[in-house]
Design a protein around this nucleic acid. Structure first.
Lengths: 263, 263
DNA sequence: CCATCTTTGTGCACGCGTTCACAAAGGCAT
DNA sequence: ATGCCTTTGTGAACGCGTGCACAAAGATGG
């Protein structure tokens, strides 16, 4: 999923490759866990395993940030945590607004991973007047009318859209007009935004459909497209392809195309 | 490529690139919308715009499925809907289980995009005995003890994990042992699975961090290096609040409301 | 039946991302 | 110091995905 869009070739002169940026949070999480266990240093091999990636890839990723490792020893956990946090911009506080407080919006509002990672829910916004004032996750829901003032008053630059598909573009337009320049879209719609605004999209339906594709392939390799619900417990994966040396007989997810993408 | 081990360059005539597979649901959605408006045919240019991609890319994607278009005219909407649905395996019914009925799990259970796209929630499972029997989205929550029997009885091959990070691997192991071969993971953890099991992961925290990275770069392009203090280890707030999403806020007709978020 | 116009299908080139493999660098024991 | 061992950092090769540009295919009108 390259930046294949109305955007610059993503080759920012000072730029870290998009693929690397997408993995930094993964490393950060693994490092944070090590930090809490007071582990002083970690090798690329260990950290790579913890993050579920290849060690060579990890080293190359870190090489874009600078030379923070010590040969023969590994990486200093605390130092690396700081460097990555700084690189991702997590050393500052990012106020975000969540628009659309339905089941999903409420779930997002209750998500604990916000505060611990530099994000703060500035406000919850919903179009339903009946929701106004109602407390969700400790915050009173504000009505859509206040959207613009909330954005400007709090200096919000990141917005999360969790509305039905039909309302997404309209909400998006208002967010952008009010000054938001980064949007995380949960609505199953293609959003149009002006130049300079980043959009990432998360779509459950698409994820499931991709899984279904692979599942179908696994389940019925020779079977006709008839209905088949019974799943053999011992699915025999075709052995045609060369077997990759899997550590411990298990494989961590070594690659993945997120359902999110720049727009 | 949530499918790590699927290295099979161009062996099969069935070898559809992962990147293409990931876009098929996008095309399908756009086509479905056209179908509902009774549009008979559509050109690659129009469809590409609707799906938010490049027309050349779209044509190339379709070329992997076969030649379903008519030169000088375009593609037959209905026929293409069927072909893509079949390719994705959506012409059959996929029972799925959702494990971990917290805020997120409940949101997923209420997600309307399931049924309309070939998926059916076979059961909601939670480890909390207090939740057992409680209706969520019209289904009674089942206790974890029943996990194995539910999987086998319903022939479930796709599982959704919406538990806290700490429980994810254990749940994953049990799902796999019971016969599940595709997992959609919302917990912020790297899951280890045996060969042949597909895992896709959705992580809100990571998405936001990626946005923050770009946001920081946009903001700090002309601004002087802002003030910042090194934040050592971040305290991880354990989710304790028992606030749950209002069950009354049911979504409309069949509008999709995607959902996503790590525990 | 032929000319013209539209749109598909794809060969080709380019660039990003991944992986290999190894020299350089640093620690540590002797 | 010196030599050995470990691990980083990276040059280079390779493969995948993207986008261009155009010839082929089919519709349409005269």
């Amino acid at each position: 999923m390259a930046t294949g869009r109305t955007h610059r070739p993503a080759t920012r002169s000072r730029g870290i490759p998009e693929a690397t940026v997408a993995r930094l949070p993964l490393y950060l999480r693994a490092l944070t866990a090590l930090s809490e266990r007071s582990v002083p240093t970690v090798s690329s091999e260990e950290l790579a395993t913890a993050a579920g990636v290849n060690s060579a890839k990890l080293r190359k990723d870190f090489s874009y940030l600078g030379s923070y490792g010590t040969r023969g020893v590994g990486y200093d956990v605390e130092y690396l945590v700081y460097q990555i946090s700084r690189e991702l911009g997590l050393t500052q506080d990012w106020p975000v607004v969540i628009v659309g407080i339905g089941n999903l919006g409420a779930a997002l509002a209750n998500y604990g991973g916000f505060a611990s990672r530099g994000f703060r829910v500035a406000a919850l916004i919903d179009a339903d007047p009946a929701m106004a004032g109602k407390p969700v996750a400790g915050l009173p829901v504000r009505h859509t009318d206040e959207l613009e003032s909330i954005i400007t008053d709090n200096g919000v630059s990141i917005g999360v859209i969790a509305t039905p598909a039909g309302a997404a573009q309209q909400v998006c337009d208002r967010l952008v007009a009010a000054g938001v320049t980064s949007i995380l879209n949960f609505a199953p719609t293609v959003l149009s935004v002006p130049e300079g605004v980043d959009v990432r999209k998360v779509d459950l339906s698409i994820e499931l459909q991709i899984l279904a594709f692979h599942e179908q392939r696994k389940a019925g390799e020779e079977t006709s497209p008839a209905q088949e619900t019974a799943v053999a417990a011992t699915a025999q994966p075709r052995s045609g392809a060369g077997v990759r040396p899997a550590p411990g007989g298990r494989k961590g997810p070594d690659g993945d195309v997120p359902a999110v993408m720049p727009a």
